[in-house]
Simulated assay, not measured.
Amino acid sequence: MPEVIPQFLHRRPNLPLAEAWEAIEDDDLNRDELVEIPLLGRVSAGLPIEACLDAGSIHVPSRMVRRNTYALKVRGDSMIDCNIFDGDVIIIERQESAENGETAVVMINDQEVTLKKLYIEKSGVRLQPANESMAPIYLKNSDIQVLGLVMGVVRQTGLAA
C-alpha cells in the first residue's frame, strides 16, 4: 500500500486565490506544531450537496489555524482554477460574511452546501465556479448564508512504497 503524505498549502494574504497558495515545506513542518481541528464533513465543488455533518479530525500546522477553524473534504472539480481539487481537504475560517470575489463555503436555503467564489450583484448573489466548463449559480441574498472562507488546503499525495 503506498504511503500517503499530506501536502499543506497555506494561503498568503492579499493575493487572488489561484496565486495565493504557498506550500509549507518539510523543514518548516518540523518547526511547526501540528494541531488537531475538526473535520466536519464534505463540501461540494460542483452542484450543491445536502449539508451533513461528520465527526472527525485532522492534524494541520499551527500556522493554518486561527480562532474558529475547521476542515471539509472537497468533492468535485468546480474550483480547479483556484488550485482546489477533488479529494483535497480545505481549511476554513468560520465567518458569516465574505468580500466580493472571495472563495467561501456557502449554505443555500439552509439545506445544501457548496464551495464557490462569491460575488454580490445588483440582482442578488452569484456563486462562481473556478472552472470554465461550469456555470455560475444565481441566488437571492436571503437564500444564502456564508459559513466560512478558505484559508488552506491539505492535499493527500500517494507515493510508491
Rank of each mutant, 00 (worst) to 15 (best):
D26T: 13
I108G: 00
H59P: 01
A98M: 08
D26P: 04
R12D: 03
K116L: 09
L39R: 10
M79R: 03
N68L: 10
V113P: 01
S123H: 14
K117Q: 15
M107F: 08
T157G: 04
N68H: 15
T114C: 11
I24D: 00
V150D: 00
R31E: 14
T103L: 06
T114W: 04
N131F: 09
A135S: 14
D27C: 11
A71Q: 07
I144H: 03
E33Q: 14
V65A: 09
S97E: 15
V35R: 13
P38F: 02
P13D: 12
F85T: 00
R75Y: 02
A18V: 06
E93Y: 05
T69G: 04
M107C: 12
L15V: 11
P129C: 10
I84G: 02
A130S: 13
R63A: 11
L115E: 04
E25W: 01
L15I: 09
V153S: 00
D86R: 01
S133N: 14
P38Q: 04
P13K: 06
L15A: 15
D143M: 09
A55L: 09
V154K: 02
E36R: 15
D27P: 00
V89M: 07
T103P: 03
P136G: 12
G56K: 07
M79E: 13
E102S: 13
I49R: 02
P48C: 07
A71I: 03
Y70W: 13
A20F: 04
L53W: 08
D77P: 00
R155L: 09
K117P: 00
P13H: 03
G101N: 10
R31V: 08
V154S: 03
V74L: 06
N14E: 12
T157L: 14
L15W: 08
G152C: 04
I91K: 00
G124A: 08
L34E: 13
P16S: 06
K122M: 07
W21I: 05
M1F: 08
G56H: 10
E96C: 10
Q156E: 14
D28P: 01
P129Q: 08
Q145W: 09
P136T: 10
A160F: 13
F8T: 00
P6Y: 01
M64T: 03
P6H: 03
Q145T: 15
D27F: 12
V43I: 15
Q128W: 05
I91E: 02
A135W: 07
M64P: 00
A71S: 05
I5V: 12
A23H: 01
L72S: 02
L53V: 13
C82H: 09
I49Q: 05
C52D: 13
R42T: 13
G124S: 05
H10R: 14
Q95N: 11
L39S: 07
H59K: 15
P38D: 07
D77C: 02
P136H: 08
I120A: 12
D32E: 15
V74M: 02
S57D: 10
Q156C: 08
P16G: 01
L147M: 15
R94T: 04
A51I: 06
L34P: 09
Q145A: 14
